[in-house]
């Protein structure tokens, strides 16, 4: 079984993520060509270590994100410090704060404007489920209703350490991807049929 390596954090520390384990199992079911596999590893190494985020702070979590960039937590150590202000140049969108009905089309548009491959991290209770504002008439109860989310980081706002854990989870996820062969994207014929039968 392929186990993605993240520097200074043993694989066993990433507990409880059955979904990723299953993904690995499925991707490696038929085995991998050596050359293609190595190339994939190289590409994934590059992608996972160079996650440039789009500055998208809507609320409180954005301040913690700034603290993340500052000297004490210094996300530059991981190479995350290149925050791009243009969605075209960003690799991931970190949704930092509540998404409201008025903001939702904007978020969707920003996501659409990003170049592939793109990832979404939902930071904080508000983005995950609406948080304390779940009952409001103007708050989207969870951004997964609008864009596909890769990693959820709970908290209000999460501590900087939690941000890192979330980012490492994303790195781990990226390290499992298959660029060649496009296993990640293409759905198998029978799966689609299965769904239509259900």
């Amino acid at each position: 079984m392929k186990e993605p390596k993240i520097k200074s954090i043993p694989y066993s520390e990433f507990k409880d993520n059955e979904y990723l384990e299953n993904m690995v199992a499925e991707l490696n079911k038929d085995g991998v060509n050596v050359i293609v596999g190595k190339l994939d590893d190289l590409i994934n190494w590059g992608r996972s270590n160079s996650l440039w985020s789009l500055t998208f702070g809507t609320s409180c979590c954005a301040i913690e994100f700034m603290a993340l960039g500052a000297a004490r937590y210094d996300m530059a150590r991981f190479g995350f410090e290149v925050t791009r202000n243009s969605p075209r140049q960003a690799d991931m969108i970190m949704v930092l704060g509540t998404i409201t009905y008025k903001m939702a089309p904007v978020l969707k548009r920003l996501y659409d404007q990003m170049a592939d491959p793109k990832y979404v991290i939902a930071i904080g209770g508000c983005t995950i489920s609406g948080g304390p504002f779940k009952n409001s008439y103007h708050v989207v109860p969870g951004i997964d209703k609008i864009v596909p989310v890769d990693v959820y980081v709970p908290g209000c706002p999460p501590r900087p350490e939690a941000f890192y854990y979330g980012m490492m989870q994303l790195q781990r996820k990226i390290k499992l991807e298959r660029f060649f062969g496009g296993v990640n994207r293409k759905e198998k014929e029978e799966d689609i049929q299965d769904e239509s039968e259900d």
Binding site: T58, S59, G97, T98, T100, K102, M103, V106, F133, N135, S136, Y137, H138, V139
Partner: peptide, 11 residues
Amino acid sequence: CGYIHRGIEKM
């Protein structure tokens, strides 16, 4: 404004 209007007063 209103891109982060959460309706706190109504809630």
